[in-house]
Amino acid sequence: MDYFSIDGPLNEWIVLFHGTGGNEFSLLQIAGDIEPNANILSLIGNVGSRESRRFFSPLENGKLIRTDFNERVEEFLTTWHHIKPTNTEKITFLGYSNGANFILGILEKAPEIADCIVLMHPANLGYTFEGGSNVQIYITAGSMDTLAIPGDTMKLSKQLEQHFPNTTFKLVDSGHEVRDIEIDYLRKVLK
């Protein structure tokens, strides 16, 4: 899995997971808006290319291809073991759409991987959380989102709360896109 990093003056890291069709640069502005002084580690999905680039294979009939999904998560965890920032005060994973869904797969296997998790517009794809932690999780959803249905995302939030008690759900007036109101909200809660 390819990645790149940008050094910042804070002893804090934001790890970015783009959405479908994105790249390692897609979420830089959002990360900079949230905390301009953080170090950045941005990953690039290795399935597909250009407008179909993603972290795991496309869904089949609305469902994860579990074998592929689990293999991709394990590949990330192996990479993470070698690239994980050390001696840092805070690690935040931030993912949008496909990247947020991928982070959920990571949480299935490694519930204490980060101090904070931001899931922007994740889909409820039948995750199974056996463990949990006190990680702070923020989930955002668009009230008019037709790709990640907000009611299903709220159900996902309730499922997460059973294993991760510090889970917060925020519904914003948008579709599947990230809006300024969402970034403003995240900036406030992540300080």
Results as ranks from 00 to 15, higher is better:
residue 84 K to Y: 01
residue 134 N to T: 12
residue 73 V to L: 10
residue 157 S to Y: 02
residue 86 T to R: 03
residue 148 A to V: 05
residue 76 F to G: 03
residue 72 R to M: 09
residue 48 G to A: 09
residue 97 S to T: 03
residue 71 E to M: 11
residue 176 H to Y: 04
residue 76 F to V: 11
residue 107 L to W: 06
residue 93 F to Y: 07
residue 81 H to F: 07
residue 52 S to V: 11
residue 108 E to W: 14
residue 119 L to E: 02
residue 78 T to Y: 05
residue 125 L to P: 08
residue 84 K to V: 02
residue 134 N to K: 12
residue 179 R to V: 08
residue 170 K to W: 05
residue 174 S to G: 03
residue 115 D to I: 06
residue 69 F to K: 13
residue 105 G to C: 09
residue 53 R to H: 11
residue 148 A to M: 06
residue 180 D to G: 07
residue 127 Y to A: 04
residue 120 M to A: 13
residue 48 G to D: 04
residue 51 E to S: 15
residue 140 T to Q: 01
residue 128 T to G: 13
residue 174 S to A: 07
residue 89 E to A: 12
residue 76 F to M: 09
residue 130 E to D: 15
residue 127 Y to K: 10
residue 141 A to P: 09
residue 169 F to D: 10
residue 85 P to V: 14
residue 60 E to T: 12
residue 165 P to N: 11
residue 68 D to A: 14
residue 73 V to E: 06
residue 77 L to Q: 09
residue 74 E to D: 14
residue 100 A to G: 09
residue 102 F to R: 14
residue 123 A to V: 07
residue 54 R to S: 15
residue 78 T to F: 08
residue 174 S to F: 00
residue 136 Q to C: 06
residue 78 T to D: 09
residue 49 S to W: 09
residue 154 M to Q: 09
residue 106 I to D: 02
residue 90 K to S: 05
residue 122 P to H: 03
residue 153 T to V: 15
residue 140 T to S: 04
residue 133 S to N: 11
residue 112 E to H: 15
residue 46 N to T: 14
residue 43 L to A: 05
residue 151 G to S: 06
residue 171 L to S: 06
residue 111 P to G: 14
residue 45 G to E: 04
residue 137 I to N: 03
residue 90 K to A: 02
residue 171 L to F: 05
residue 94 L to Y: 07
residue 161 E to T: 15
residue 125 L to V: 13
residue 106 I to L: 10
residue 84 K to S: 08
residue 174 S to Y: 03
residue 69 F to W: 07
residue 154 M to L: 14
residue 94 L to S: 04
residue 140 T to I: 05
